[in-house]
Design a binder for these strands. Structure first.
Lengths: 353, 353
DNA sequence: CTGAAAGCGCTTACAG
DNA sequence: CTGAAAGCGCTTACAG
């Protein structure tokens, strides 16, 4: 591989001149620039990014760690779409992504540390939103630029940059849609209970129920850990409630909603005539289930993109003022939700739009 | 960030000793090692990977470029699963992935060049399998370690490492399944005609048809460019063939099969009673369509994993002997295929298993 | 506009 | 087992 010295020799200039031509900032006479450029072309020279990074302490690279690489993680649109958005933003700004896997959540932190302390990235996008792991505190200790995808714990709110879906409003819209259809017995199937998003959505679920004067039955709340069997199992449990069983299910992602659909079909319950089902994420899959899933569109690609953009301005402008975005979500009405069956409750407020 | 000198000062040794402790290869007295380690711990020291790379010319990083980051690219399981496999293998071997996006195929090559010539990766996994772009030749020129996901052009066969699905056999199995069901008018809906995989599968389709003495009608062959509308459009075209219209469709991925399903439903044709449909990839989606798609499982995660493993042995052992893997694919029989309608052809060979 | 020199943070032959 | 020195390939103040 040709180096700056080889080019210098060939172009009969000092290596520093070659450097200046390639850094693009210094003023160089047109004649010299041309000589250097053609010598470089000739030798197939390209500045060594590693050497450059060592000197400038900039890598033009954004780090990320993929929380836990299990099979289903790539079935939901959540991660692939975030990845797509990140890639897009990185590409536009001539940055690259360096990505590492991790086994579970403690390992995630050590991977983050590894990347940052080994100086392979200028900053890092972090997706963890666990309540039981103080990722954010550890990150703040590290004194490393980062952007969180998800909500920060309240205490650190204004010290850090983050971008998240507006989970509260998303869930409120979803639950309100079901309430408008006359449902009063509404189940909430969350992901991992230790996940902040799960909690936020549950909170919004409870608030919305209460705001409509509806009771909340603890048996209507379950956690499906974001996978299909989790949704299936939730129905298995709740079917034992008899008359008190939910007439509508709201699931925190589409995979679980698919599991709910499967369980209901097995039980011979018609969707949406007898039971309504809502998912979350508007994954590609959700258009193709039977019936097609009513869901909440969460702009994950946009979120990934914003996160990278935020981080890039942070590391290039040294503008350390943290900022945050809350992305709007909207309902996607399809065929898995309908008015509550008349045997249950009268339709009190008319159809949804 | 603490450097090796800071640690050396604190541990009262020479910087080179600190280096030796962290490189793990040299012999160091237990006492010194402990002193160094505790000093490092104290200062939060971690060797700077960039500096190390500059010296050793090793990055412990594998490059990859994502061909074209358009929305649908992440809907099919193809790319996310390859990514998952790559991540898994990289993680196991303590490597990282550096990934860059690209806009189209010529840009892909320049991105690859950028990564390699700038020394940010030890080698690269390349997914391109275009016929009109001589990626492989360019790569060979660059003299950079790489592994191809896909088939190399015949001429370079033995010079390079690659891993691919056994597309020939996969398609043969698929078409044979349809033939066994009595179908004689079988459509092939490929991806991009300039894609090698598309060609290979088409070849296998034609061979299998001929081997059973079936005619091949040019109108039964179309290209859906791997997306849903592409499959939909193919049916739109072929429906004009009247009695000569296909009784079965084989699509080169599930997304196109879904489009075929949609078009057929719109036309009021029953699947599989009147028309059979097969997809490829066994994406998560394919289980949930109506009817559930008969498809071919292609182990993309395994392919991504193998590619990274191959590349890692190549760059660490300097074992430059190229090798290759052809991964087995198998049929996944579900509900979208059935015996040809009796008005068309008698069932000549019985049901498939 | 260009050259000469120092240095980014490591590694590694060479001595001892 | 440990130290001293050179160097990986760049960048960038400092001169002129």
């Amino acid at each position: 591989m040709a180096t700056i010295r080889d080019v210098a020799r060939k172009a009969k200039v000092h290596p520093s001149t070659v450097s200046r031509v390639f850094s693009g900032k210094a003023s160089i006479s047109e004649a010299t620039r041309k000589r250097v450029l053609s010598a470089a072309e000739n030798l197939g020279f390209q500045p060594n990014a590693i050497a450059r990074s060592l000197k400038t302490q900039k890598t033009h690279t954004i780090g990320m760690v993929v929380p836990h690489v299990f099979e289903g993680f790539f079935d939901d649109s959540f991660f692939p779409q975030i990845m797509r958005g990140m890639l897009e933003a990185a590409y536009q700004h001539h940055f690259r992504l360096i990505v590492s896997g991790s086994q579970g959540y403690t390992d995630e932190i050590s991977q983050i540390k590894d990347i940052m302390r080994s100086s392979q990235a200028d900053g890092i996008v972090v997706m963890s939103s666990r309540l039981d792991v103080d990722t954010v505190d550890r990150l703040l200790e590290l004194d490393t630029p980062f952007v969180l995808i998800g909500h920060p714990p309240k205490e650190n709110h204004h010290q850090i940059s983050w971008v998240d879906a507006d989970n509260q409003i998303a869930t409120r819209k979803a639950i309100q849609h079901l309430i408008n259809l006359g449902h009063k017995q509404i189940a909430y199937v969350g992901g991992d209970p230790k996940n902040l998003t799960t909690r936020e959505r549950q909170q919004a679920y409870e608030d919305t129920m209460r705001a409509s004067g509806l009771a909340i039955e603890p048996n209507w709340i379950d956690y499906g850990y974001f996978d299909e069997p989790g949704g299936y199992t939730a129905v298995q449990r709740m079917k034992t409630l008899g008359n008190n069983a939910p007439t509508a299910y709201y699931a925190a992602n589409d995979l679980m909603a698919v599991g709910i659909l499967r369980a209901l079909t097995e039980l011979g319950r018609c969707v949406p005539e007898e039971v309504s089902v809502m998912g979350t994420n508007n994954s590609y899959l959700s258009q193709h289930t039977t019936p097609a899933l009513t869901t909440v569109d969460v702009p994950y690609a946009e979120i990934g993109k914003k996160a990278v953009e935020l981080l890039i301005t942070q590391v290039t402008n040294l503008n350390k003022t943290p900022s945050s975005y809350l992305e709007d979500c909207h309902l996607v009405l399809r065929s898995s939700t309908g008015p509550v069956a008349s045997s249950n409750q009268p339709d009190q407020s008319g159809r949804s739009h």
